[in-house]
């Protein structure tokens, strides 16, 4: 089950991330998870938000370069070795992870990790087959 992630291209200059956060705040968009990847001169901010479609439109209108990407959100046991167990399932299926980041929130005893894999449906299958639960989109947006 795919989760909609919002990615934003940002030039590496002072205040630009603030401008992004400020726009989201003014529009009442709440972030569920956030990750920032950086190269020398630019960065990509990836977010799971409570209202991805509205966030994408609003950011595009505000002049940001935005992409919507499907990612998988997996519940993992919040114990040492928890992440390794999930990654093991993907490794055994030969699925490469492009990037992954953890959620701020926890659901009960579980932590959540969001990941982008090469082949989403194969990735989902291998995780479900290995006994992991994918988080429902609606549940995630309203955490």
């Amino acid at each position: 089950m795919a989760i909609k992630q919002i990615s934003v291209f940002l030039e590496n200059r002072a205040g630009r991330l603030w401008e992004l956060a400020d726009e989201l705040g003014k529009a009442g968009v709440n972030m569920r998870a956030l990750s920032i990847g950086e190269a020398a001169d630019f960065g990509v901010v990836r977010m799971i938000v409570n209202n991805p479609d509205a966030a994408q439109k609003m950011l595009t209108d505000a002049g940001f370069t935005v992409a919507e990407t499907d990612v998988l959100a997996v519940e993992i046991p919040d114990v040492p070795g928890g992440l390794a167990s999930v990654l093991g399932a993907l490794k055994d299926s030969g699925i490469n992870i492009e990037y992954a980041y953890a959620f701020v929130a926890r659901v009960g005893e579980k932590a959540i990790v969001s990941m982008r894999v090469e082949d989403a449906s194969a990735g989902e299958k291998s995780l479900v087959d290995a006994g992991f639960s994918l988080v429902d989109a609606q549940k995630l947006y309203t955490l």
């Binding site: 990615s7 990836r46 370069t65 990407t69 492009e98």
Partner: peptide, 15 residues
């Protein structure tokens, strides 16, 4: 300038 229409979300592709 990056093109609006071309924005691969993967960092690796941008680099």
């Amino acid at each position: 300038e990056m093109s609006e229409k071309f924005f691969p979300d993967a960092m690796r592709k941008l680099v």
